[in-house]
Write a protein that binds this DNA or RNA. Structure first.
Lengths: 112, 112
DNA sequence: CTAGAATGATCCATAAATAATGCATAGAGT
DNA sequence: ACTCTATGCATTATTTATGGATCATTCTAG
C-alpha cells in the first residue's frame, strides 16, 4: 500500500460492516459452530474470524463473504438461486448503461 | 501475512462479491459519477474502485462498503434507518445466544 | 472522424492485513 | 465448585493489498 495513514468511514459503512459481523456471529452460534471451526472451514485464521465478527473495516471481502456463506448467511437477503438471478439482472442493467461517465460537461442524469 | 498462497472461495461467496461490485458500478453510473470521482470521495485509489467493482475478493470491507454508501447503495436492502434498527436487533439476538459454543459434546442445536 | 476523457490494466514501493502462536479470561457442562 | 474449552487479545513474521504513476484502449460528444 502507499499512503493511507488511517482512513475515515461514513457511519453507514461502519454500521453495515458491524451488522454483517453480528449476523455472521449470530448465525454461527445458532448453528453451534465454534470460531476455530469456522476459521478452518473458511481457510482463514481464528483471529480473522474474530475481527470479521467485530465488523473491522480492514478485513477482506473474500474472507468475510466466505465466512458468511459457511454459516448459512444469505447476503443481500437472497438465497443462492436468487443471488444468481440478481447477478444476471445486474449484468443486464450494466449492459444498458453508458460504459463511461462524462463529468466534463457535467451531464448528471438527475438534474433538470 | 503468513500462509495463504492463494485461497479458494465458494461459488456463493464469489457471486456475492461480484454482485456487490456490479451493484456499486450500476449505482455509480446511474448517478453519473466517474470512477475517479468515487475514488476521491471514498478516499481510495482509482484502481481500488475498479477492483471492487470487479468483485475481487481481496479488497477490504471498509473500502467496498464506503464506496457503496457513496453511490447511495443500500446494503442488505435496508435504508440507513432500517440498518440501525437491524443493528439493534442483531445485538439483542446476540445477547440471548450462548456466548461460547461447545463443540466437545457435539451438541448441535438442530439435531433431534 | 476527431479530440478529449474515462476506463482498464500493469509495475513498483510500501503500508497494512493476515497467520501463527501464546496467554489470560470467561463460559459451558458435569 | 471444578474442569475443560472457547474466546479475546497481543505480538511477530510474512504475504498481500493498496496507492501512485503510466500507458493502451474504449467510449462520448461534437
Amino acid at each position: 500500500m502507499a499512503k493511507p495513514t488511517h482512513r475515515s468511514y461514513s457511519r453507514y459503512a461502519r454500521e453495515a460492516a458491524e451488522l454483517l459481523g453480528l449476523m455472521i456471529r449470530n448465525a454461527r452460534i445458532e448453528r453451534g459452530i465454534t470460531v476455530a471451526d469456522l476459521a478452518e472451514r473458511a481457510g482463514i485464521s481464528r483471529g480473522l474470524v474474530h475481527r470479521i465478527e467485530k465488523g473491522e473495516m480492514g478485513s477482506s471481502i473474500g474472507a468475510a463473504f466466505e465466512a458468511a456463506a459457511i454459516v448459512g448467511l444469505r447476503l443481500f437477503e437472497a438465497d443462492p438461486t436468487t443471488l444468481t438471478r440478481h447477478l444476471s439482472i445486474e449484468r443486464s442493467k450494466l449492459a444498458l448503461l453508458p460504459q463511461s461517465v462524462r463529468t466534463g460537461t457535467t451531464r448528471v442524469k438527475d438534474d433538470f
